[in-house]
Amino acid sequence: MPQDVSQPFTSSIDGSPAGGLARSASGGADDEMISGIRSVLAECGGLAVDAGTLAVDDDLYAAGLTSHGCVGLMLGLEEQFDVEFPEKLLNRRTFESIAAIRNAVCGLLDGGEA
């Protein structure tokens, strides 16, 4: 009998057949979301730097995000991802980094609140 046919699809990261593949798929979706967030940041955030140069954990307020820019960013994110930020997420921590925004939007898309 032939060997397990799933073997050629193992991940070079950890060698597991499905685990690596799932991580790649979710990484692609994550990359797409981060790209969307960067796009909204560039258009609506009023940052002092290019949004494309920021790491996902960089402090957006240190990069020039103001309270006015934050409102524009929130509205842009709501339109981009078809979500609505509840009042409890309208705080500095939600918009402090691309990673924080991603987590909030993911929580809203999953049907809950981040």
Rank of each mutant, 00 (worst) to 15 (best):
Leu89Gln: 12
Gln3Trp: 07
Met1Asp: 13
Asn91Phe: 01
Gly45Ser: 07
Gly20Pro: 11
Ala51Glu: 12
Met33Lys: 01
Ala29Ile: 02
Leu47Ile: 02
Asp110Glu: 12
Ile34Leu: 14
Asp57Phe: 00
Thr94Lys: 11
Ser97Arg: 04
Gln3Ala: 13
Ala55Val: 02
Phe9Val: 12
Pro8Arg: 13
Gly111Asn: 14
Ser12Tyr: 10
Val5Thr: 10
Asp50His: 07
Arg93Pro: 00
Gly76Ser: 11
Leu73Thr: 01
Leu41Ala: 14
Glu43Lys: 07
Gly69Ala: 07
Leu89Ser: 06
Met74Asn: 00
Ser39Trp: 01
Asn91Arg: 14
Phe95Ile: 09
Ala62His: 05
Gly72Trp: 07
Ser97Ile: 06
Leu60Val: 03
Leu41His: 02
Ala42His: 07
Phe81Asn: 05
Met33Phe: 00
Pro2Gln: 15
Phe9Gly: 03
Tyr61Pro: 09
Gly46Gln: 12
Arg23Tyr: 03
Ser26Tyr: 04
Gly107Ala: 11
Ile13Met: 08
Gly64Lys: 02
Pro2Gly: 11
Gly72Glu: 11
Gly36Ile: 14
Asn103His: 08
Arg92Asn: 06
Gly107Pro: 07
Leu90Asp: 00
His68Leu: 11
Asp14Tyr: 04
Val56Glu: 10
Asp57Tyr: 00
Gly69Ile: 06
Ala48Cys: 00
Leu75Thr: 15
Leu41Cys: 06
Ile37Ala: 10
Leu108Glu: 03
Glu78His: 01
Glu84Arg: 09
His68Gly: 02
Leu89Met: 15
Gly107Glu: 09
Gly45Pro: 05
Ser39Gln: 12
Gln3His: 07
Leu109Tyr: 08
Ile13Asp: 14
Ala25Val: 06
Val56Thr: 15
Ser35Val: 11
Gln7Glu: 13
Asn103Ile: 05
Ser24Gly: 08
Gly64Asn: 03
Gly36Tyr: 09
Glu78Ser: 01
Met33Leu: 03
Gly69Arg: 06
Ala42Val: 03
His68Gln: 14
Ile101Glu: 08
Ala48Thr: 11
Ala63Ile: 10
Gly15Gln: 03
Gly19Val: 04
Ala100Trp: 05
Gly112Gln: 15
Glu84Asn: 04
Val5Trp: 04
Ala55Asn: 13
Glu87Pro: 12
Asp59Val: 08
Ala99Ile: 04
Thr53Gln: 08
Ala29Gln: 05
Glu87His: 14
Ser24Arg: 10
Leu41Gly: 05
Gly112Ile: 14
Ala55Met: 03
Arg102Pro: 00
Leu109Ile: 02
Phe81Gln: 08
Asp30Thr: 15
Asp30Tyr: 10
Asp50Ser: 07
Ala25Leu: 11
Leu41Arg: 12
